[in-house]
């Protein structure tokens, strides 16, 4: 892929070379949710649900497992906490490497979409299909 940054190599298809594999969808959505600003766990769940039009509903065990992993990889850090109505809210923030990774992923998806759109323009409507 022209213009791809080296970080691309980290996430490749589990099956075939050259078929670029996206980030796991929940990971992608969590990073996207945090891109707008720090958020607490409940906020991330709501935002992921909204971003995916209700398709992806994270449960807390899954969410915190994913957050642990992202923190471990340095893509997300904890960023302050507060207590609201006796409930602890801890906030998470996207780090610069996290933002870079998300940017690479977005670029990859945009390139794919652009390539598909270009080919679609050459498609002749109503031609016989095989």
């Amino acid at each position: 892929m022209p213009g791809a940054r080296p970080i691309d190599g980290i996430y490749r298809s589990p099956y075939l070379r050259g078929v670029t594999a996206p980030l796991q969808e929940p990971t992608f959505l969590i990073l996207s949710a945090l891109a707008a600003g720090p958020m607490h766990g409940y906020g991330v769940i709501q935002e992921v649900s909204a971003l995916s039009a209700g398709r992806v509903t994270l449960r807390p065990g899954t969410l915190y497992g994913a957050l642990d992993r992202l923190v471990e990889q340095g893509l997300v850090v904890q960023d302050g906490e507060e207590v609201v109505d006796g409930r602890l809210r801890r906030y998470y923030r996207l780090t610069d490497p996290g933002a870079d990774l998300l940017a690479v992923e977005v670029e990859r998806m945009a390139d794919n979409a652009k390539a598909a759109a270009a080919r679609l323009r050459r498609h002749v409507r109503g031609a016989a299909t095989t």
């Binding site: 970080i7 780090t95 490497p97």
Partner: peptide
């Protein structure tokens, strides 16, 4: 070292992450 200078901060920050939980 996988030919990617950008990934270096990622590997470093995971130890610096202010997390007590993981």
């Amino acid at each position: 070292a996988a030919g990617n200078p950008q990934a270096v901060p990622a590997a470093k920050t995971r130890y610096a992450a202010p997390v007590t939980g993981t």
